[in-house]
């Protein structure tokens, strides 16, 4: 469509706002952060530089590698737990619930907690799992245990439970979406050809829903990897995660270049995961064409 030059200029003027805003306030800050990750700290100042010392330190100092590995482990466990809870739920909603009203209602019920403050949802687990918390005291008043168990709070299990609780809707949403998009005819065709429900799941539903699983897993993994509230509330001393480390570098430790290097690593990891996910989703979309 050809337009007069004045109109193009007006359009350009209007549209330069979002472009300029994004460039200046989003892209440049990310680049800035990457730049700072190469700087040197000369306490109490940070000096522009170009050296890889910060990265070397992150990969060589066990203080940091331990935390990075732990965070990876916890994020992976949360992702697995969310998948185990979320997939059957989505499957049930799409294939077992016949009533559309009921299906929408239960789906809403799964999504609604996302609207309730994330901080509060993490906090509730502190109330539940604490030494004097709801779970211990309930078990004691029921006579199941005599003394509070420390089993529940300030450990990694508590973090996995809390993070799974917070992020499981992010797993359900994309899986539900792909399952709902699988034509019902394919399942009927499979049964028509003599394959029972289990075989149909294995050969038809599972491969066709892989895209949603990948998207949900990516979301859950990235979000739980970057979480810093759960470690503070329920994690305890061996629960420090990458995000807490980041906080320290910009707070007490006052080492912005090192913190920026760590943040850049997280950024790179997320970009790689996003890239892989995009590739996997395109591959599965090609399948469903």
């Amino acid at each position: 469509m050809r337009r007069p030059a004045s109109s193009i200029l007006k359009t350009a003027g209007l549209f330069s706002l979002p472009l300029g805003w994004t460039l200046l306030l989003l892209i440049v800050p990310y680049l800035m952060m990457i730049a700072v990750s190469f700087w040197t700290r000369q306490f109490p100042l940070f000096v522009p530089d170009f050296q890889f010392g910060n990265y070397v330190q992150l990969f060589s100092d066990p203080q940091y590698t331990t935390v990075i590995l732990r965070t990876l482990k916890i994020a992976a466990m949360v992702t697995a737990a969310a998948l185990v809870l979320g997939y059957p739920l989505a499957y049930f909603l799409v294939f077992t619930l016949r009533s559309e009203r009921l299906r929408n209602l239960v789906y809403m019920a799964v999504i609604v907690p996302l609207w309730v403050s994330y901080l509060l949802r993490a906090y509730t687990w502190k109330i539940i799992l604490g030494t004097d918390g709801a779970l211990n005291s309930a078990l004691m008043s029921l006579g199941v245990i005599d003394a509070p168990l420390d089993l529940f709070l300030y450990n990694q299990a508590a973090m996995v439970i809390t993070l799974t609780y917070i992020f499981v809707p992010f797993m359900v949403m994309p899986i539900y979406a792909v399952l709902e998009n699988i034509p019902k005819g394919l399942i009927e065709a499979s049964e028509d050809l003599g394959i029972g429900p289990l075989g149909t799941f294995r050969h038809v539903i599972a491969p066709l829903s892989l895209g949603g699983v990948v998207a949900g897993a990516m979301m859950t993994f990235c979000l739980s990897f970057g979480d810093f509230v759960a470690p503070v509330l329920v994690g305890g001393p061996d629960g420090i995660m990458v995000a807490n480390l980041l906080q320290t570098q910009f707070g007490a430790a006052l080492n912005w270049p090192l913190g920026s290097a760590l943040a850049t690593l997280v950024l790179i990891m997320v970009l790689v995961i996003l890239g892989l996910t995009g590739w996997a989703e395109r591959a599965s979309a090609r399948n469903l064409r």
């Binding site: 800050p29 990310y30 800035m32 952060m33 990235c222 990897f225 970057g226 910009f250 997320v270």
Partner: peptide
């Protein structure tokens, strides 16, 4: 593509990273 991906990035990137990036830049 870069423009779109940059806008969508904070949705999957841990908020702390975005916060740090902004802090660095605002300070400058």
């Amino acid at each position: 593509g870069l423009f779109r991906n940059a806008i969508l990035l904070p949705l999957s990137l841990p908020g702390l990273v975005t916060g740090i990036a902004m802090l660095n830049f605002y300070k400058q």
